[in-house]
Design a protein around this nucleic acid. Structure first.
Length: 552
RNA sequence: GGGCUCGUGGCCUAGUAUGGAUAAGGCACCGUCCUUCUAAGUCGGUGAUCGUGGGUCCAAAUCCCACCGAGCCCGCCA
């Protein structure tokens, strides 16, 4: 079937019969609601000296016989073109019928790695980190939808300074105690508080790092076991949010193998030295340090090793990173592409920070909204609301509905905002289930299910399409185009905003176009529209991680 | 100081890549609609110098320049 975008080319090509100089840029999507496409006469009027009326009649002569054209109308310098909704409806219907999935996408099954979250295992996951996790999770889902073989990846830091501090803190204050998230976190917060007054902490951390890098196997294992406690906690939160993580790579793995030494040595001729530390220069002549003066390794080098590992297995490497990593990513890309000549396709996606109204979130300082806290409060609020709305439902049902509502709302609220934009977390927004939200989408889905439950059956036909049906058809027809945009730009927010748009069209249809009570012919047509709508909502929900319920 | 990102009604967001018509949604506020497929919905109303100033163009939220404000980065941290 045609993508909506393809009509633009089709129209352009057909107009070229009358005016060979016409370009695709003269034909545009209409965003003002006048039509589907607009032919702008400015350029042609100038080059030919003809008036818009004349141009319209010339264009009418070549377009009027085309079955895909519904109407053409002149409005000042614009010629408004509407696509025949019956043609689109038929294509939609056949596409869903034939492929069972709309749109049917196909893609060379390239292997893709999507790295996200990768937060240091020093505390529970908070809302700021969740943004990164959800971005990566949705991107992975979108690429999977396109037929890529996607693996999600978590790079676990168990070898940096912060982790040494975490271990030292646990050892100092809670040694012997069974390591659980709470004791680990509280001692971690405490050591950063005491560090400035107690120089022995700094020395202890340095000592740990040296022992670690020299391959103290027992120490490595002990640290890994402490980090694992925090990582388990993070994983549990991710799981609750519906985020699937396939693969974990520990930084220490690359230290154990000695690969880091090889990497540093491989830059031999461009390697420079400063007080024993090794570095190279980026194109801006800034130093990229690869090894400390004391011989210990740096995150940058471990990340090179990690990407070499990924490059062996994946054709396309995607890293979802916080915006504070932009400089790191630029240098990494330079090293991998220019110096190491890595042929793989590499993309970085950045997310801006989530802050609280009171300021920055920080695990260390203990002012952050954790995922568990967010989920719990959101679910409580959802339960309160669903209990009021549906007193007829049993307790268990109310709880499962509110669990779905809570998870879906949180995901949707975060993912629908462009990742470049910094956001302020507000409880009042998190706990609102009206308007542009996941429940709005879920509710429309429940309505669609309700219609299909009540309606009989009828043979679908594509005629006598009324305004609300037409708008719904056009918007559904745009789905493949929007999903493609989202895939090409790695932006799930495009799908989220499209979905809101689609739901609004469905609500207009719902209000104006009764299904169950209409005559057989109309009913057949409308049932089919509702079925197609339902299948698209099911599709986007999988991409965004929204749960759907047949009743709510 | 240098680099990157953001700035759209009281608040939040879309639109910016590829310039095009009265700038599109949501929250809040005021009013409407439940004997008709679920009112987490619907309809109407109030509310915008698209950060500021220049420039390009028939046409600028969108492109160019300068400036202002916010965030992030500029570590032998990650």
């Amino acid at each position: 079937m045609l993508l909506f975008e393809d009509y633009r080319k089709k129209i352009t090509d057909d107009i070229k019969i009358a005016y060979p100089d016409v370009e695709e840029s003269d034909v545009g999507f209409d965003r003002t609601g006048h039509a589907d496409f607009t032919f702008r006469t400015f350029r042609i009027a100038k080059s030919t000296g003809r008036k818009a009326e004349q141009i319209l009649s010339d264009i009418s002569a070549v377009l009027s016989g085309k079955p895909y054209i519904e109407s053409m109308a002149i409005d000042g310098p614009y010629i408004n073109i509407k696509i025949n909704p019956s043609v689109m409806f038929r294509e939609l219907d056949e596409s869903v019928e034939l492929k069972g999935q709309f749109p049917d996408t196909f893609q060379d099954p390239e292997r893709v790695s999507v790295e996200h979250t990768s937060t240091n295992p020093t505390g529970p996951l908070h809302v700021g980190r969740l943004r990164n996790a959800l971005l990566g999770d949705s991107i992975a889902r979108i690429l999977g939808r396109y037929g890529y073989r996607v693996t999600t990846q978590y790079f676990v830091n168990d070898s940096g300074r912060q982790i040494m501090a975490l271990y030292e803190a646990y050892r100092r204050y809670n040694s012997g105690k069974k390591p659980d998230m709470e004791t680990i976190l509280s001692s971690y917060q405490r050591i950063y508080g005491e560090m400035e007054n107690d120089p022995t902490i700094e020395l202890a951390i340095k000592d740990l790092m040296n022992r670690y890098e020299n391959g103290d196997a027992e120490l490595m294992d002990r640290i890994k076991s402490i980090a694992s406690v925090a990582l388990d906690n993070i994983n549990t939160s991710l799981k609750k949010m519906g985020v699937k993580m396939d693969d974990y790579t520990w930084e220490s793995d690359f230290i154990r193998t000695g690969e880091l030494v090889e990497i540093v040595d491989s830059f031999s001729e461009m390697l420079k030295e400063e007080d024993g530390a090794k570095y190279i220069l980026n194109p801006s002549n800034e130093k990229i340090f690869l090894r400390r003066g004391n011989g210990t390794s740096l995150y940058f080098t471990r990340d090179i090793a990690y990407h070499k590992y990924k490059a062996r297995t994946y054709d396309w490497i995607i890293d979802i990173l916080g915006e504070d990593h932009k400089g790191h990513a630029k240098n990494l890309e330079f090293v991998l592409k220019n110096l190491m000549e890595m042929p793989n396709h590499i993309d970085f996606v950045f997310n801006a920070y989530v802050s609280l109204e009171t300021g920055k979130m920080s695990t260390r300082k203990g002012n952050a909204v954790t995922i568990d806290e967010l989920l719990e409060r959101t679910q409580e609020e959802a339960l309160k609301i669903v209990s009021e709305k549906r007193p007829d439902l049993p307790r268990g049902k109310l709880e499962s509905i509110s669990a779905s509502v809570a998870k879906s709302s949180i995901r949707f609220n975060i993912i629908r905002i462009n990742a470049n934009k910094q956001v302020v977390f507000r409880w009042s927004e998190a706990l609102n289930f009206e308007g542009d939200s996941a429940p709005y989408i879920m509710y429309s889905y429940a309505r669609a299910c309700g219609i299909l439950k009540h309606a009989g059956s009828g043979k679908p036909n594509y005629d006598n399409i009324v305004a609300q049906e037409r708008d719904l058809i056009v918007t559904m027809y745009q789905y493949p185009y929007r999903i493609m945009e989202a895939k090409n730009s790695l932006r799930p927010d495009i799908i989220a905003n499209y979905t809101l748009d689609l739901v609004k069209k469905f609500n207009d249809f719902y209000r104006e176009c009764p299904v169950a009570s209409s005559d057989a012919r109309t009913m057949g047509k409308r049932i089919r529209l509702v079925e197609i709508y339902k299948s698209i909502i099911e599709d986007v929900s999988k991409l965004l991680g929204i749960d759907l319920l047949e009743e709510m």
